[in-house]
Amino acid sequence: MRARAGTRAGQYIALLAYLVFLAFPLLWLLSTAFKSPRELGSLHPTWIPRNPTLDNFRQAFDEQPLLHAALNSLLAAAGAAVIAVVIATPLAYVMARRRTALTRAATGWVVVSQAFPLVLVIIPLFLVLKNLRLIDSLFGLTLVYVVWALPFALWMLAGYVRAVPTEVEEAAAVDGAGRARTLVSVVAPLLAPGIVATGLFAFVTAWNEFFFALVLLKTPDKQTLPVVLTHFIGAEGVADLGPLAAAAFLATLPSLVVFAIVQRRITGGMLTGAVKH
């Protein structure tokens, strides 16, 4: 099928417009991160820094405990991802293979949890965690991230389980493998790529999360990266632009890398999850 030359040209112009719209803020962030304070103060900012400098990065680390915050983020995000996947996989298996009142309720929860505004959850959550002495604690935040990552993880994993033919399990049963044995040594390996992708996605969501971290962590040395980033912006909204841009750029790198790895698998899984429901 050949489109006419005019249509093609139009398509390229449209695509170019999209490219510009999508890319220009990213490039500006990058450009700002490498500009000296003097250049940032000048009236005619340019796309390419006149005297590229790494000072902003150094200054960003001096001004805010970025490394420590990144470590906090890493602990919370990795912990949440691992726990979420470990507890979600068995439930997702049951949800995919059984139709009981319980699995229907779980599916209902997956959908409803998307619709509730976080305010309605955060106030009671704050009170519950306070009673459990898990306020202002990274462990408490990790638990919240686990539950917060579950709906998507269940959705994805149930889709992956449905893609495993039941015949495989039946064959294992015929060969004399018990139920637990079948799950651990037959089903789990087949699910492994999906489990890893789901875990990595949960990691990115938790790494990027802001609202819960803002409310639940008060002590500065427990705060995660997104919260610490906002400290670069002063009370009157005045910010030290260079270090802010540098820190923002660095904070994005881990999610970008992980996301690039799992992106294709996630979009595929979203559909298998969706199609079979």
């Binding site: 999508l22 980033l229 841009a245 996301f259």
Partner: peptide
């Protein structure tokens, strides 16, 4: 490019656009 905004922390997206909208140093 269409995927990148999805992977970025919302806080960073906000910070980035503050730089774009900045009255003096903004593009």
């Amino acid at each position: 490019l269409a995927i990148i905004p999805w992977a970025m922390p919302e806080v960073v997206v906000g910070v980035m656009w503050r730089l774009v909208y900045n009255p003096d140093a903004g593009v």
